[in-house]
């Protein structure tokens, strides 16, 4: 089972794409220009982000924007490349629907056409593709100077050493990884198969759309997987807060990017040190030592 985040776009937004842009291999610069074109030509901000209380906006910074610009998540948090990523966020924000700070699951605003283009988790875009497969296209996320960073969410299955019934557990894992079970999982909860499966005819066109975008994104030439934060334990929430507060201060409160990154860097380092969490990909390994913000 795997999931990730992709971009969903209403077909009405496609005519506003910047000239020469390949919709399946957009760059952040083209995404910004696209948002700007839509706002200027329709008068409405039709791009959205799930930046509300129940949204997953922090993952956009941790797995997409910051690694795409800086090539890392923690070590490069405050460098000039990361600052360029935040500058992109500031630049795109005027063309983003200002109600984004209330959005949780982007499928809702996509279906009501309050927004045309949105980034979110596949499970939170599912209803849009399921209900109106002919209205939407599923796209890989944009690429930055360091690559097409994306966060693959892989569900791992393991058997504890102390398990009472190891053979039963093995049988369960075999069952869960059968293509048929994976297709059922996909249909029920929107987690995609991790082994190659052919989508049978009864898989709805919506899931097929999402599944193809997930594959395109993962197999793109410049793909840069940025893993889910690891080893943080109880500090996972504090880690997310660092990125959300950075967003709030830089984008919503218009504070100076360098100053905010300098302030937040110290908090991030405290979180990493307290959690004793080593770096994870795409940051270079720090061995057993806590990951260090450069």
């Amino acid at each position: 089972m795997q999931a990730t985040y992709i971009v969903a776009a209403n077909k009405k937004a496609l005519p506003f794409l910047p000239a020469g842009a390949d919709v399946n291999a957009l760059t952040y610069a083209q995404y910004l220009q696209w948002a700007k074109n839509v706002k200027e030509k329709t008068g409405q901000a039709k791009f959205g982000f799930p930046a509300g209380a129940s949204g997953l906006m922090h993952r956009f910074f941790q797995g997409f924007l910051v690694p795409a610009y800086s090539g890392g998540v923690v070590t490069t948090f405050a460098n000039d490349d990361a600052a360029a990523g935040w500058k992109w966020m500031v630049d795109v924000w005027p063309y983003v629907n200002p109600q984004s700070t209330t959005y949780g699951f982007m499928q809702e605003q996509l279906l009501s056409e309050e927004v045309w283009v949105a980034w979110d988790h596949v499970a939170r875009l599912k209803d849009a593709f399921e209900n109106k497969p002919n209205d939407f296209v599923a796209l890989p996320v944009p690429a930055g100077p360091k690559g097409r960073a994306f966060m693959p969410v892989v569900a791992g299955l393991a058997i504890p050493k102390t398990a009472n019934n190891v053979n039963g557990a093995k049988a369960l894992i075999s069952y869960l990884t059968e293509p048929k079970t994976q297709i059922t999982t996909l249909r029920e909860v929107g987690f995609f198969p991790f082994t190659n499966v052919d989508y049978p005819g009864y898989v709805s066109p919506g899931f097929k759309l999402e599944g193809e975008a997930v594959t395109k994104q993962a197999n793109s030439k410049d793909a840069l997987p940025a893993l889910l934060p690891q080893g943080l334990g109880a500090k996972g929430g504090d880690f997310n807060k660092v990125y959300l507060d950075t967003f709030k201060r830089i984008v919503l409160n218009n504070e100076d990017i360098k100053k905010v990154l300098g302030d937040q860097k110290k908090i991030l380092q405290t979180v990493m040190t307290d959690a004793k969490a080593p770096c994870w990909s795409p940051d270079p390994s720090s061995g057993d030592k806590p990951c260090e913000v450069k």
């Binding site: 209380a53 949204g55 109600q99 700070t101 209330t102 949780g104 709030k248 919503l252």
Partner: peptide
Amino acid sequence: VLAVTGRGLTLLAA
């Protein structure tokens, strides 16, 4: 407040 304004407004209890 959370339902109506999301992250737009914040309160002590929120």
